[in-house]
């Protein structure tokens, strides 16, 4: 449940970008930060290893202003995708309100996507949250690699593998080019804020 300060009329919304390692979660946040640096006017906090991998998490907070008399503050997080950092992933998921699942569209990452989605379901269940009920947007990333001749999974396959049961909104994207990065963000904020509003009623 989002942090709601009724006295200050403020809502903090926590959105986590989840998915397999090297899928483009950090690239999503980096694009948002670079593109809208002047508007969101906040710093992105990131902790990386020497090999440029996310060691702990990335954090990008910003305000979207007053909606329905509440000042809405958005906090975007990423989790480290590598299997060994599950404890960190669980920690970052604490108090999550919405999720963007960033899948890697490369053929050779097919299994890793499925494992990561299962891992998300398990970790959410520890906080008594259902992957089916939580606001979630699917993002199939790296579509730009097709131009480089790298084999990608067809969208139908990605939908069948990851979204056939969940039936969530999905986007084909390129985080490095910015394709559908903002659409994904807008969609998850809308779904999450609407969900919080419903819970508050």
């Amino acid at each position: 449940m989002a942090f709601v300060n009724l006295k200050e009329k403020e809502i903090q919304v926590k959105i986590v970008y989840y998915g397999p390692g090297r899928g483009g979660k950090t690239s999503n946040l980096e694009y948002i930060h670079r593109k809208f640096a002047n508007r969101i006017n906040t710093e992105m906090v990131t902790v990386k290893t020497h090999g440029d991998r996310t060691l702990f998490f990335d954090f990008l907070p910003f305000d979207i202003g007053v909606i329905n008399n509440f000042n809405v503050k958005i906090q975007l997080y990423t989790v480290p995708g590598q299997i060994k950092y599950n404890a960190t992933r669980k920690l970052v998921l604490r108090g999550v309100d919405g999720i963007v699942f960033v899948a890697d569209a490369m053929v050779l990452r097919r299994e890793k996507n499925i494992l990561s989605l299962k891992n998300l379901q398990e970790n959410l269940s520890e906080y008594e949250k259902s992957i089916f009920k939580i606001p979630l947007v699917m993002q199939y990333n790296k579509i730009d690699l097709k131009e480089q001749g790298i084999p990608l999974l067809p969208m139908a396959t990605l939908e069948r593998d990851l979204n056939s049961k969940l039936k969530k909104t999905s986007f084909a994207s390129s985080a490095v080019l910015g394709t559908n990065v903002i659409e994904t963000l807008k969609r998850i904020i809308s779904l999450t804020v609407t969900s919080i509003k419903k819970d508050l009623k």
């Binding site: 909606i67 939908e159 909104t169 807008k186 609407t194 969900s195 509003k197």
Partner: peptide, 18 residues
């Protein structure tokens, strides 16, 4: 974009702000 059938309706205020 693939839209689910049961997508939530968004408030125009929020959509406009975003």
């Amino acid at each position: 974009m693939v839209e689910p059938n049961d997508a939530d309706n968004l408030t125009p205020e929020l959509e406009g702000r975003l």
